[in-house]
Structure formats: C-alpha cells, structure tokens
Design a protein around this nucleic acid. Structure first.
Lengths: 233, 233
DNA sequence: CAAAGCCTGACAACTTTCTGACATTTCAAA
DNA sequence: TTTGAAATGTCAGAAAGTTGTCAGGCTTTG
C-alpha cells in the first residue's frame, strides 16, 4: 500500500518507540528518517525535505506544538501527523487547529497508523509527481535537470538550476532571500552575508534566462525578494 | 476557524444525527447539503460537487464503503471523512484503505469533528484564510503584500502598502495622523513634523490607488485625518 | 479676506539592488 | 596526486528606487 518514493521524518525522543516506528514504517515501504529532539527534527525538516512528519508532542526541551507552529509560520506545507499520549479531545482539537493534518493518540494500533500515513500520502504530493514544469515559454525538467526557453536550451550551472527550480516551484509567490538561503543554499550561518551571494547568483541566472528574451520572468520585489512570474499583459 | 465558500455533503440516514450535524457545521460557517440515503448522496456528489463528504457507513440499503469504493473507482478526488459507529481498528483500517481521508468513530466530540473538517479543507483552498481583504474593487493580500484594483495590479512601495493596509483594516473609520504616525511609521518623536511626511505619502498613494479610477476610495476628512471607504452613491 | 489645513513638485538623503573584476573552491581528467 | 577549467563566492562601487524635507500653491472655513 506504500508509495515507494515518499520520505517520512519521525520526531520522537523515546528511543524504543522511535526504533519500533522506524522499523514498522520502513517495512511498509517508506524511506524513514528519525530525530530524537526538536532541534534535530527542525534541522532535518529542512535538510531532508520529508513528505510527511510524524510528530511526538512530549519532547524534552521544546513542546512539539511549537515546532508545528514554527513550521506553519515559515509557510511549509509539509504534512504532519501528531502521534502522542496527550489524547484528550482538547489536545486533539488543539493539535489539528495548530496545523496538523491528523492526530493519533498512543497507544495506537500499528495497522491504523500505517493506514493513516497512506491516506495522507495518497493525495498527490505537490507537483513532485511530474518531472517537468513550465512558466510561460520557460520549461524545467527536474529529472534531467535541464531548462529551456522558447525551444532554446539554457546552459545552467547546478546552483543556477536549483535556484531557478525553487523559484519555479514558487511561481507567482515572492521568494525572500531568507527562504533562498535556507532552502537553496542550506546554510544556517556564515560569516559573510549571504544576501550578496544570492544577488550575484540571481544576476547570473537573469543573464541566461531573461536577458536574451523580451519577456522578463524573473522580477525583483524590492524589500521582499524575487518572484518568477509572467508579467501581466 | 471555518473557511467560507466550502461545501460539505453529509450522507447519514439517522434524521436526528443528520440535523444536528447540519446545524453544527453550518454554524461553523460551511455550506451544508444533506442526503438521507446512499442513492441520494451519490446523486448529490455529482450535482452539488461538494468539497468534502461526511459519510456514515450504516446506511439502510447499501453499505457506505460501497459508495466510497465507487467514488474512488470513478476517479474523484473528493475528500471523505467517515463518521460511524463501526469503530474497531479493523473498521478504521478498512475505511482508510478504501480511500477515506479520515475516520472518526461515534460517539465523537463535535469540536474534534470540526477541527478534522478544517484540517481536511485547509489543504484545498489556497491560503485565502485571513490573508486578503477588499474594499470595493480594491483587493489587498497581506501575505503576498500585493494590491490590485479592478484586476490591475498596483505597484506599491513597502511604505505605501503598509499605509494602504492600515487604512483598509480601518475601512470606513477615520484614521488620524497620530494613529498613522504611531502604527505605520512607529516613530515616537522626530525633529521635523511627521504630518507632512504623511501627507506626502498619502498623495503618492492616492496617485496610484485613486487617480487612474473614477471611484475615489481614499478621502480626506478635514481636520481629522483620512478614511478609506466606498463613497455613497 | 485671512488663517488654517491640505496638496504637490522638486530635490536631497538614504536604502537596496546590481554588476564587473577578482579570489577561492570544486571536481574530474591527466 | 597534481593540474586546470568551470563554478561559486567576495568585494567595492555604481545604479536604481524609496522615503523624507521643504517651499510654495491651493482650498476650505469662519
């Protein structure tokens, strides 16, 4: 019943429980990553980019709901299933209203957990299904990692392609430098400002993607970031 | 917590239960349609095109799971929440594996039902929650920080958008210069008068928001301040 | 009409973004 | 392992855009 390619992140501090979950879910055919603390989990959400998060609420340092709240504030659409022994109606309502997609109390039945995981992942995962996407006459192919515009193949470097892909996946939306630093560069901290690195890379991308064409897709939103969109006619 | 505009279909043969559900869910702000039999429900799925189906499994003629199975065979991606007194683990697993998105056993808590409905519908409707507001043909989107009037996108600077948003949040009311100084400029004191800064910025905003249109929304209330409102006809 | 309040064009000060030139890193071929 | 070209990062200064200031004109009100 599992969908081969999905990755699940488990945030759970109880080692025994965590091991059991990892084993059981792997056996159902998913790729599994486990974190033992809120901080580790938070990091892994960004570095591993899982399709589903299994979240325990009773973590040592930080409340599990705080993690969820933070994730939603950052605008992630990661699916979240809360799995916890806090199991009153109030807990469930609070968890769901904070942004969880499902809530299962411990003790739980493993088959039910798997069925709920399947149900959550069954819904098409945002666009990852198809390998190509296009904005106007610009076409990207994730799998081949190639881009073309109006039939002309664009010769992009790895970084340029990642950047363009991220912008394309957020077409129409304004992408901040903060988001780019986190999701494309994946750098938590550095001693030179990353904003300038981003600016330079945007300029290089623009030279290849927009300069040779009359319709400009990559726009600067002053004070906020950048946006890949078809300009209004 | 409800998102307006979503339509929910209830298939439930027990009249009392059905009425209670309709009333409670309507009170949460959803549009509700009820069916008392499988056949009627099946028809309404196609004629009403609801966003979510609340499905009871114990229907007189036909098993509720059959309906679900048929719907999934037809390839509909309608979200389905099963709500039933069949509440063993096996029932739940069977329901979810047949294609339900969530499963809640009776007796249930109404707040939890609403929270689960919200969670299921949250994924559907793109972001509209409280992110947008409109005055006449003027639309603001807090999240995207964009404004448009009659379909035309307005190209506003950061300050202009903040100012317009503040006026829009106080639509109809008169906003004084003190309020603007405090809430938009956030300056306690300065050595040049801020009133003129505000006047200039209002003029700039007016040039973009009102000048190109015949209906003027941004009005000066002499001696008091400014007000964003639809003029009386 | 005069005074108070409001509007506006011009410009200055400032912030943000862009860009060319150079430095460093990466990675694969020799 | 060394070497070299391509990719990526750094930096400083230019360019572009935003916001604040000011002076004078306009409008309303008493």
């Amino acid at each position: 019943m599992a969908q081969s390619s999905s990755k699940i992140l488990i945030i759970e501090d109880d080692r025994k429980m965590s091991d059991a979950l990892v084993a059981g879910i792997q056996a159902d055919g998913y790729e599994v990553v486990a974190a033992g603390s809120a901080e580790e989990g938070f990091f892994l959400v960004h570095s591993e980019r899982p399709d589903l998060l299994l979240l325990d609420l009773t973590l040592p340092q930080r409340n599990g709901l705080d993690i969820l709240r933070q994730l939603r504030k950052d605008g992630t659409d990661l699916r979240v299933l809360i799995l916890t022994s806090h199991n009153t109606v109030e807990d469930r309502v609070a968890g769901l209203n904070t942004g969880a997609d499902d809530y299962l109390g411990k003790p739980f039945s493993f088959p039910e957990l798997l069925a709920r995981i399947d149900a959550l992942l069954r819904r098409f995962l945002p666009s990852k299904e198809t390998s190509t996407l296009s904005i106007g006459d610009l076409c990207l192919d994730r799998k081949a990692r190639t881009a073309s515009r109006g039939g002309d193949v664009l010769d992009l470097t790895a970084r340029e392609f990642d950047l363009l892909l991220y912008l394309a996946e957020n077409r129409g939306r304004t992408v901040s430098r903060e988001m780019l630093a986190r999701d494309v560069w994946r750098e938590m901290s550095r001693f030179t400002p990353i904003d300038n690195v981003i600016d330079v890379q945007i300029a290089r991308l623009r030279r290849k993607v927009d300069d040779p064409f009359s319709v400009k897709l990559l726009q600067t939103i002053r004070g906020l970031g950048f946006s890949l969109r078809e300009p209004l006619p």
